[in-house]
Design a protein around this nucleic acid. Structure first.
Lengths: 110, 110
DNA sequence: TTAACATTCAACCAAAGGGTTGACTATATT
DNA sequence: AATATAGTCAACCCTTTGGTTGAATGTTAA
């Protein structure tokens, strides 16, 4: 379970295509900031900021080694977000089922 | 499948506790704007804006009846978001499994 | 027909977001 | 020791966001 604040940070971090792309690129394993930034058409600084957002959301972690920073993926927040969404969807699924059933019975009684 | 833009809008809309609460409150069925706004400590106008954000993200729909607007939940965007997150998680789960297996084999060979 | 009600529109404000450039820090390389 | 490299920090610029208040619009009720 995650606090609302944590969920906020996770969803906000995910609600940006650049950051989602960064996460996907990390599938190749940990990656240095510069390497991570290369394919983007924005400045290194901009990417650095995006990484910071992901880091604050705990979606990535950073390992400093000399002057290089190695960024890698952390699955926990996505798990928590998925849990929240699933919970909400299940909740709604059952409610919509109930509604549908009620409507069907209403039909029958006509 | 949802376009990046759509996913952006969905996640952005969800990344706010007020809007998540509004969605939850809608489980009681469709609700008028004023009724929806009542428990919040912000102005009616502020809630009206939040509803607009949810509406643009297609997370709610609006039925006008005279001077009243009835807001109700729409499940599709949440389904799409869940699909994206699940996809990403599964992808990562398999990658992390592979990593773990590789590490174990590395251990054996020592 | 006047008054109350439900809701949005418009203008404004402060804070945050996403980007830029330029300077700075720390580590490598020569 | 001098220089190049990796990355952040700081200041700035727009635009967006989340909130406010006050006026406008349309609908219902007295």
């Amino acid at each position: 379970m995650s606090t609302p604040r944590t969920l906020d940070r996770t969803l906000t971090a995910l609600a940006d295509p650049t950051r989602r792309t960064i996460l996907q690129r990390l599938s190749a394993g940990e990656m240095r900031v510069t390497e991570l930034a290369r394919p983007f058409s924005m400045s290194l600084n901009a990417v650095s900021k995006h990484i910071l957002v992901l880091e604050r959301a705990r979606l990535v972690k950073r390992r400093r080694l000399g002057r290089e920073h190695f960024i890698s993926y952390r699955p926990e927040p996505l798990d928590a977000a998925a849990a929240w969404i699933e919970e909400t969807r299940n909740f709604w699924a059952s409610r919509l089922d109930t509604l549908e059933r009620l409507l069907r019975e209403e039909d029958k009684n006509k």
